[in-house]
Amino acid sequence: QSFTCPYCGKMGYTETSLQEHVTSEHAETSTEVICPICAALPGGDPNHVTDDFAAHLTLEHR
């Protein structure tokens, strides 16, 4: 399964590499985005909106 960065649209990330990408490239970004990992999880929330995606990844998807 691969994920797309909700900020810049780059594709092909794993859960881990998406977290690394967001932390390095978009750490200061506070735009509201939908978490693509939550959306892909069975029973996950397809509409989970977060305005601190880097922190959300760290808390929810480590």
Score class of each variant (00 low, 15 high):
Ser2Asn: 13
Phe3Thr: 01
Phe3Glu: 00
Phe3Gln: 01
Thr4Ser: 13
Thr4Cys: 07
Thr4Gly: 04
Thr4Arg: 05
Thr4Pro: 06
Thr4Gln: 11
Cys5Ser: 00
Cys5Asn: 00
Pro6Ser: 01
Pro6Cys: 01
Pro6Gln: 01
Tyr7Ala: 13
Tyr7Arg: 06
Tyr7Met: 09
Tyr7Ser: 05
Cys8Met: 00
Cys8Ala: 00
Cys8Asn: 00
Cys8Ser: 00
Cys8Leu: 00
Gly9Pro: 11
Gly9Lys: 13
Gly9Arg: 05
Gly9Gln: 09
Lys10Gln: 07
Lys10Trp: 01
Lys10Glu: 11
Lys10Ala: 08
Lys10Ile: 04
Met11Asp: 00
Met11Trp: 08
Met11Phe: 11
Met11Asn: 11
Gly12Arg: 06
Gly12His: 01
Gly12Gln: 06
Gly12Leu: 00
Gly12Asn: 15
Gly12Pro: 15
Tyr13Thr: 08
Tyr13Glu: 05
Thr14Ala: 08
Thr14Asp: 08
Glu15Val: 07
Thr16Arg: 14
Thr16Trp: 05
Ser17Ala: 10
Ser17Trp: 03
Ser17Thr: 15
Ser17Arg: 10
Ser17Glu: 13
Leu18Met: 10
Leu18Trp: 00
Leu18Gly: 03
Glu20Thr: 06
Glu20Met: 04
Glu20Gln: 12
His21Gly: 12
His21Trp: 01
Val22Gly: 07
Val22Arg: 02
Thr23Gln: 08
Thr23Arg: 09
Ser24Ile: 13
Ser24Gly: 10
Ser24Trp: 06
Ser24Val: 13
Ser24Met: 08
Ser24Lys: 08
Ser24Pro: 05
Glu25Pro: 03
Glu25Ile: 03
His26Tyr: 01
His26Trp: 03
His26Pro: 03
His26Lys: 10
His26Glu: 14
Ala27Cys: 09
Ala27Trp: 06
Ala27Gly: 10
Ala27Asn: 13
Ala27Met: 03
Ala27Asp: 10
Thr29Tyr: 10
Thr29His: 06
Thr29Ser: 12
Ser30Arg: 15
Ser30Pro: 04
Ser30Glu: 08
Ser30Thr: 15
Thr31Ile: 12
Thr31Gly: 10
Val33Gln: 03
Val33Cys: 01
Val33Met: 03
Val33Trp: 01
Val33Asp: 10
Val33Phe: 02
Val33Glu: 06
Ile34Gln: 08
Ile34Thr: 12
Ile34Cys: 03
Cys35Leu: 01
Cys35Met: 02
Cys35Lys: 05
Cys35Tyr: 01
Ile37Pro: 14
Ile37Cys: 02
Ile37Asn: 04
Cys38Arg: 05
Cys38His: 05
Cys38Glu: 06
Ala39Phe: 03
Ala39Lys: 15
Ala39Arg: 13
Ala40Glu: 09
Ala40Pro: 08
Ala40Tyr: 05
Ala40Phe: 07
Ala40Lys: 08
Ala40Val: 09
Ala40Ser: 13
Ala40Gln: 10
Leu41Tyr: 14
Pro42Thr: 06
Pro42Asp: 13
Pro42Val: 09
Pro42Glu: 12
Pro42Ser: 08
Pro42Trp: 03
Pro42His: 11
Pro42Ile: 12
Gly43Cys: 07
Gly43His: 11
Gly43Ile: 03
Gly43Trp: 09
Gly44Met: 04
Gly44Leu: 07
Gly44Asn: 13
Gly44Glu: 13
Asp45Val: 09
Asp45Pro: 14
Asp45Met: 06
Asp45Ser: 13
Asp45Arg: 13
Asp45Ile: 06
Asp45Cys: 01
Pro46Leu: 07
Pro46Gly: 05
Pro46Lys: 15
Pro46Arg: 09
Pro46Asn: 14
Pro46Gln: 01
Pro46Cys: 07
Asn47Phe: 13
Asn47Arg: 13
Asn47Asp: 12
Asn47Gly: 14
His48Val: 15
His48Gly: 11
His48Ile: 15
His48Phe: 14
His48Tyr: 14
Val49Leu: 08
Val49Tyr: 12
Val49Ala: 12
Val49Glu: 04
Val49Ile: 12
Thr50Cys: 07
Thr50Asp: 02
Thr50Leu: 10
Asp51Ile: 10
Asp51Ser: 15
Asp51Leu: 11
Asp51Met: 14
Phe53Gln: 07
Phe53Ile: 04
Phe53Pro: 04
Ala54Tyr: 05
Ala54Ile: 10
Ala55His: 11
Ala55Asp: 06
His56Met: 00
His56Gly: 02
His56Val: 00
Leu57Lys: 02
Leu57Asn: 00
Leu57Ala: 06
Leu57His: 02
Leu57Met: 07
Thr58Asp: 08
Thr58Cys: 13
Thr58His: 09
Thr58Lys: 11
Thr58Gly: 07
Thr58Trp: 07
Thr58Leu: 11
Leu59Ile: 11
Leu59Asn: 14
Leu59Ser: 13
Leu59Gly: 10
Glu60Arg: 04
Glu60Ile: 08
His61Tyr: 00
His61Glu: 02
His61Gly: 02
His61Ile: 00
His61Gln: 02
His61Val: 00
Arg62Glu: 13
Arg62Gly: 15
Arg62Met: 15
Arg62Cys: 01
Arg62Thr: 15
Arg62Pro: 15
